[in-house]
């Protein structure tokens, strides 16, 4: 039996091997003054509660409703995004790629897991998986089909391979039937996956 909960071991529950290793790193780095435990907590809290796809969704909704912003975003995303108070911590550049009826954009990082964190938060597990990282380039249409995205025959798929220096954000097409929605309502239909290219915005009728 892997876990015998009838044991009467009086000691504390032993964390997993990698968890102990991380504790060791934290201890060493704190002792050397290289890490402040409170700062680590703040980083975790930031990425758990504040930074997430809702930031990217707000940018997409603004681009859908404000043509001047959309043009600025496509021309120089770093500047347009920092004007809204968001931006990179790793010194990376953000490039926004726009879906059109002719071209669907799909983002991957074949090397590791580069991702526009400040706009989308921590990437989902599948983005970091070997399967996605290998197949997005090799057979993007098959990958898209697994995500439930079927494109017209006339639509090309363009795959963008992120690097440590350049992160891509997809600007999805504004769904039909969303004409009457304001910016905040539109942000609610922009899904995380639609900004990676593995999804489409929620149907306009589905927004509440």
């Amino acid at each position: 039996m892997p876990h015998d909960h009838h044991d009467d071991n009086p000691h504390s529950l032993l964390p997993s091997e990698p968890a102990l290793r991380v504790k060791a790193l934290e201890t060493i780095l704190t002792e050397k003054g290289l890490v402040d435990p409170a700062a680590l907590d703040a980083i975790i809290d930031l990425y758990s509660h504040e930074i997430g796809p809702q930031i990217g969704a707000g940018i997409v909704a603004k681009a859908w409703t404000d043509d001047a912003f959309r043009a600025a975003l496509l021309a120089d995303a770093d500047q347009a995004i920092s004007a809204l108070g968001h931006g990179g911590r790793q010194g990376e550049h953000v490039v926004v790629v726009e879906n059109t009826p002719e071209t669907h954009n799909l983002v991957v990082c074949t090397l590791c897991s580069c991702y526009p964190w400040p706009l989308l938060g921590i990437p989902p597990g599948w983005y970091k998986s070997d399967s996605y990282r290998a197949r997005a380039v090799r057979e993007p249409r098959a990958v898209l089909a697994e995500f439930g995205v079927t494109l017209g025959e006339g639509t090309k798929v363009r795959v963008w391979d992120s690097t440590a220096e350049i992160r891509y954000l997809v600007l999805p097409m504004r769904p039909e039937g969303s004409g009457g929605m304001d910016e905040a309502t539109l942000a609610g239909i922009v899904t995380r996956d639609s900004m990676i290219g593995t999804g489409l915005p929620a149907a306009a009728g589905a927004a509440t």
Partner: peptide, 24 residues
């Protein structure tokens, strides 16, 4: 595809390893 992932890290040590790296 939830708009906001409730748990971006599966385990606390994932979060700690991430935070140490960003901090350094």
């Amino acid at each position: 595809d939830r708009p906001v992932p409730v748990r971006p890290f599966d385990e606390p040590w994932h979060a700690a390893a991430f935070a140490i790296t960003v901090h350094l």
